[in-house]
Design a binder for these strands. Structure first.
Lengths: 386, 386
DNA sequence: GGTTGTATGTAAAGGAGCTCTACTAACAAA
DNA sequence: TTTGTTAGTAGAGCTCCTTTACATACAACC
């Protein structure tokens, strides 16, 4: 008596690709989701007619009109007049996101010596850029400085600010608490909550290298499915985006690749161990190593570091079947022999299916990756857009 | 004029942890989601009262009663009488999932020589187990054999079957098409669609090592957040579950760790390259290597393989901040020196935060991991439970 | 120049889904 | 017996989306 019960057992219609339904969904959540969906299309597709939005989202024109009316009321969207060009039927009215009507404030704490900040439009364009010397401050002092610096950025904004994004080194949990950032002497500092309280507007905090990946993913040319962004600066960090979601890891420490051992019997690292990736790949280490070398020797060294990087990344690429590795950092050091050797090494050390599907390129945003990423944090947290 | 607009810009209420809202959500989707949510709680928490379900999910008692009524009507849930024990208030009526009222058929194609299949309850318990010699069949012949084998399993079921799950080696896409499985001579075979058409009930197909991870995750003791399951058999494969979602990868090839180069100038591999992980870690390779050795030498060899494994996994563990690595395969080879060396090596080669948060253990399901995983495929695909 | 066809956007009615409030039922403890 | 607590259900109401119908505006065609 083997009876198919397809009729009586309804197929599960999944909301996301995740396996476990974990929280209840109410009509209002559906509404918020669809609202974000519309915004998302306008964000990436530019000005569009309501009818096109309906076709793109699968919602009806009626619902789209309703959602767009809400968004217009909130000031996030505006009508841009009739679509140019002659077609049959009633001319479409274009609607577009008002990317300049609101702004975002971003702060990048990556650098030991200086706070970097910016005011950005919702499209990620930098309107105003500021810096502020750290002068050796750490712990609470640094928090105070950060607060003052952020206030000065808010004062520099020329439109309402939807939120503040902060990229910090160290391990940061989902709530924006810095669990540990030794160089800043921060341990269990609820930075996001503290700043939100003091500033009176939403503040999002995340790991700098992690959000660099978000920045590249949203504003760069990164693929949708599986990207790793490697940030090379004073240290080495990474961020991974899979199916549009940032990988956080069990203890919010995903992407901490700087202190993986890659060289047996290697140099001593600041962390106390030896042979960490940072001892060969960080900007200071690279500069030291090639200082005074001619082009050929310098390239040879960079290639050897690239090979070491490739050996370390090959298992990661295989395990995740990555589509793209993006490298952010000084192009004079990284773009060239180093990246080439890394990609070649990864291809040599992985299956053809894995290696062939992989691209490796330099980041498109240079020094502003983290600022852009912090903006994405705000965009996605406040507007559901990324 | 820096004005906070928190009031006018509604915070995005996210449905999942993903960043990009990608598909519209209708009320019926919300209903299906909440239905799965209830089922999920009953699946993992066992019999529960409606009131407790309401507290656990955040939905009201009214809604829960409504959902439970639907589920009872569909035959997936039943009332189990009053909860024993004396408490104040009206006694609660327990409701529980009818795990034996429906069944699942699973097939495991991992073995070259034999098809392994089973009939399982919705709780993952094996009711009936069957095998079938492959006798060198491949390509279309193997598909026909698989079809006949599946039919015999369906005939052996003693309750309505909700769906069929198949674990296949090779690369399988989300639709259940086997993109390539060289040993089976399958290239772009739409296996799930084909079987669904012929059998008239839902068939789900996925990579065997991938779903082994699902099996361990659901029926084993794996953690929620970040797990990698390494399956060691004739070859080596892996599956990764992050935040409850299986990692698919850009080309549906995530987890293909068997052919990462781990030994420079190593043995020739069946894939044509040298030094692949499979050349040292597969069951045949391990047996060959320790054949005739005494315990001490054998352990030394196993430990050396464990170190190689640890070196390869350390970057993966760091990049993903894994909580757990689960190893599935023959305990006599893997459990002991090999696993110990692997864990020690990973700990040595990663930051303390990363290494300390990691556990490594043997799988709890032994040979039935893939069958269990295939069942999870059906559970999650048909009922939204996992 | 009128007619036809196509496309956009809105209005009104309807159904699905959840909540809130209010109620009954059933028990323990005082 | 009274009081307090908990479980489950009924009915009204709100939100959100769809379906259907309609007004509007243009091109193309005779």
């Amino acid at each position: 008596m083997t009876t198919a019960v397809t009729g009586s057992v309804a197929p599960a219609r999944r909301l996301s690709s995740g396996l476990r339904p974990t929280a209840k969904v109410l009509p209002e959540h559906a509404r918020a989701h669809n609202r974000s969906l519309v915004l998302q299309h306008l964000f990436h597709g530019g000005p569009t007619s309501r009818a096109d939005l309906a076709r793109a989202t699968g919602l009806t024109r009626v619902t789209i009109s309703d959602l767009v009316a809400d968004l217009i009321e909130e000031g996030l969207v505006e009508e841009l007049g009739v679509r140019p060009g002659q077609r049959v039927g009633k001319p479409a009215i274009l609607v577009g996101m008002r990317t300049t009507a609101h702004q975002i404030v971003s702060v990048d704490l990556t650098d030991d010596a200086v706070l970097r900040g910016a005011v950005l439009t919702l499209a990620g364009d930098i309107v105003e850029r500021r810096q502020c010397a750290v002068d050796g401050r750490a712990g609470d002092e640094l928090i105070e400085l950060l607060l003052r610096f952020t206030r000065s950025l808010l004062a520099a904004a020329s439109a309402p600010v939807v939120g503040v994004g902060v990229g910090s080194p160290g391990i940061v949990d989902a709530a924006g608490t810095v669990l540990e950032a030794p160089n800043r002497r921060w341990y269990n500092v609820p930075l996001a909550a503290h700043l939100t309280g003091r500033l009176g507007l939403p503040v999002h905090v995340a790991n700098d290298a992690n959000i660099a990946a978000l920045g590249e993913f949203t504003f760069g040319a990164a693929s949708d499915t599986a990207v790793l962004v490697l940030t090379v600066g004073e240290g080495v960090g990474a961020g991974i985006v899979l199916d549009g979601a940032r990988v956080r890891g069990h203890g919010d420490a995903a992407g901490e690749l700087g202190h993986v051992t890659v060289v047996d019997h290697g140099r001593r690292c600041a962390c106390g161990r030896t042979g960490c990736l940072e001892t060969v790949l960080s900007v200071p280490a690279l500069r030291r190593a090639i200082d005074g070398l001619d082009r050929q020797d310098s390239d040879a060294h960079l290639a050897s570091v690239g090979r070491v990087l490739g050996i370390a990344l090959a298992p990661v690429v295989s395990a995740l079947n990555l589509a793209e590795i993006v490298v952010a950092g000084p192009a004079d050091l990284l773009d060239g022999a180093l990246c080439e050797a890394a990609l070649d090494t990864i291809r040599e050390r992985t299956m053809p299916v894995i290696g062939a599907g992989l691209a490796l390129r330099m980041a498109t945003l240079d020094e502003d990756v983290v600022l852009a990423g912090a903006a994405v944090l705000v965009l996605s947290g406040q507007l559901g857009v990324s």
